[in-house]
């Protein structure tokens, strides 16, 4: 079973000149970057640097005041949330957001079904009879190590398992770009290790945009790190270069002081 990516040209994610003003406060002052290839791309910065606003502008939860977001060459800046997913952009939520009363399997199956071309018109077949959807669901459950838990209602999973289920659902459409908003927040050490390994794994097949507080995790798996400061990009580069950069240090220390 193949899940071919939509035939597109252009880099997975291109963000140009994103600005966001809230009532006189400029949260983003023209952020531009392009992700050319697969890999994990981390965005860090002190509190209030604009990370979450940037994430929300890309994910479609808020509209930027100016600028443009392109996924695989397609302008998605004004696309409603549900259509961004089909453009190849997937996201996980910072606060766990699942179909709590439905089974783990059904959660994933629904996410996969959303990408089945017959999803709306299919009013006649049984919900478990779309064999391609079933196979894809099983693959995702196995990949996120949730096969054992598939019959349980999602609301009864542990926190770490719920975060993994989130990501299984985000991966359902084989996205070009996966947006992860602090995927390890609130996790125990064991779960963080599992999640770190999984994110590194996803980076091999897609562009992963990661917003994360855990600097050690970021240093370990990122292909590139971008530092945001006061609504603009301060530095962007290899993890080692960023770690050694005096301006980055100053920004963090300045914010802390």
């Amino acid at each position: 079973m193949t899940h071919s990516l939509p035939a597109t040209q252009g880099p997975p994610l291109a963000v140009s000149g994103i600005e966001k003003r809230f009532d006189g406060f400029q949260a983003l002052k023209g952020v531009s970057f392009t992700i050319e290839d697969r890999g994990v791309y981390a965005f860090i910065g002190p509190n209030g640097a604009g990370k979450t606003t940037l994430f929300n502008c890309i994910a479609g939860r808020i509209r930027p005041s100016a600028g443009e977001v392109r996924v695989a060459g397609r302008d998605i800046t004004r696309l409603p949330s549900h259509r961004r997913v089909h453009a190849g952009l997937a996201r996980s939520f910072q606060i766990t957001n699942l179909f709590a009363s439905l089974s783990v399997h059904e959660n994933v199956r629904l996410a996969v079904q959303a990408h089945s071309p017959r999803r709306v018109v299919n009013m006649w077949r049984g919900r478990d009879t779309l064999t391609d959807v079933g196979a894809r669901t099983d693959t995702l459950l196995a990949r996120l190590m949730l096969t054992d838990k598939q019959a349980i209602p999602a609301g009864l999973l542990s926190h770490g398992e719920q975060r993994r289920l989130e990501i299984a659902m985000a991966l359902a459409g084989d996205p070009r770009v996966l947006l992860l908003d602090e995927p390890t927040s609130g996790m125990g050490i064991d779960d963080i290790d599992i999640m770190t390994g999984l994110i590194a794994e996803f980076g091999k097949s897609m562009a992963v945009v990661l917003i994360e507080h855990n600097v050690r995790l970021v240093m370990k798996i990122s292909r590139s790190i971008t530092v945001l400061h006061r609504g603009a990009i301060l530095r962007s580069g290899l993890p080692e270069a960023i770690a050694a950069d005096p301006q980055v240090r100053a920004a963090y220390l300045g914010a802390a002081a």
Binding site: H82, R83, R91, F99, E106, L110, R127, A172
Partner: peptide
């Protein structure tokens, strides 16, 4: 049907149903 399954998903959590790509 798959359509009916989607209705249940919307009842359970409409926000999430939008986020995984349902209109």
């Amino acid at each position: 049907s798959p359509f009916g399954a989607t209705l249940e998903a919307i009842r359970d959590n409409e926000d999430r149903a939008v986020a995984i790509g349902y209109d």
